[in-house]
Amino acid sequence: MFSWSKDGRKKDPELFQNVTEGLRRLYRTKLFPLEDAYRFHEFHSPALEDADFDNKPMVLLVGQYSTGKTTFIRHLMEQDFPGMRIGPEPTTDSFIAVMHGEQEGVIPGNALVVDPKKPFRKLDAYGNAFLNRFMCAQMNNPVLESISIIDTPGILSGEKQRISRGQSLREFSQNSLSPSFLFLPHPFS
């Protein structure tokens, strides 16, 4: 049988307390040294941090304005969240990370990128223009014990607005958060 070991003996499997701890240890011992040797972090993306392993999966809600993204979050959690605004015109003009927290409140984007316990440190590269439109709404809700939800500004139909917000959404989702699921609501007819 094929074996990776040099002397032909079977190596005892590593045991981990949970999947997250196993992934973290494998990344630190196997993948990170390879990334570091080839300077991957200088050319592509920063190294993964503990917060990237410890935080819950994120659901990123994307769609045109007034299609029910914020209303969907409110319905899912069965309560309002800090910073929420619902109306017939474009009301959500920021990215709002709705996350679990013991104390209810809003954390501005500038504070989020320096918090080592939050997975948003990489967003610092997008500067104050973006960080002024980013916040975290923390609340103690059972739904948020297993996921975090990102409420995004609605995509407008005009070409200039669509390109501008579309670029922000693309940067936010691809380069920084690696959301676990993408939900695209459609307008109700």
Results as ranks from 00 to 15, higher is better:
Met1His: 05
Phe2Asn: 12
Glu14Leu: 04
Gln17His: 09
Gln17Val: 15
Glu21Ser: 10
Tyr27His: 05
Tyr27Gly: 04
Thr29Asn: 03
Lys30Gln: 14
Leu31Ala: 14
Phe32Trp: 09
Pro33Arg: 06
Leu34Ile: 06
Phe40Tyr: 13
Phe40Ile: 10
Phe43Gly: 07
His44Ala: 09
Ser45Cys: 10
Asp52Ser: 14
Asp52Trp: 04
Asp52Lys: 11
Asn55Ile: 10
Pro57Val: 03
Pro57Ile: 07
Val62Asn: 03
Gln64Ala: 06
Ser66Met: 10
Thr67Met: 05
Gly68Ala: 02
Lys69Pro: 00
Thr70Gly: 06
Thr71Pro: 00
Thr71Arg: 12
Arg74Met: 14
Arg74Ile: 14
His75Val: 07
Asp80Glu: 15
Phe81Trp: 11
Arg85Trp: 10
Thr91Arg: 12
Asp93Arg: 15
Phe95Cys: 08
Ile96Ala: 02
Val98Phe: 01
Gly101Val: 03
Glu102Asp: 05
Glu102Cys: 00
Glu102Tyr: 00
Gly105Val: 09
Gly109Tyr: 00
Leu112Ser: 02
Lys117His: 04
Lys118Gly: 02
Pro119Phe: 01
Arg121Gln: 13
Asp124Phe: 01
Asn128Leu: 15
Asn128Val: 15
Ala129Lys: 14
Phe130Cys: 12
Arg133Trp: 09
Met135Leu: 06
Met135Ala: 03
Met139Tyr: 02
Met139Ile: 13
Val143Met: 04
Leu144Glu: 01
Glu145Asp: 05
Ser148Asp: 10
Ile149Thr: 06
Ile150Arg: 04
Pro153Cys: 11
Pro153Ile: 15
Gly158Asn: 12
Lys160Leu: 10
Ser164Met: 10
Gln167Thr: 14
Gln167Ile: 13
Arg170Lys: 09
Glu171Lys: 14
Phe172Pro: 00
Ser176Leu: 13
Ser178Cys: 08
Ser178Glu: 07
Leu184Ala: 14
His186Ser: 14
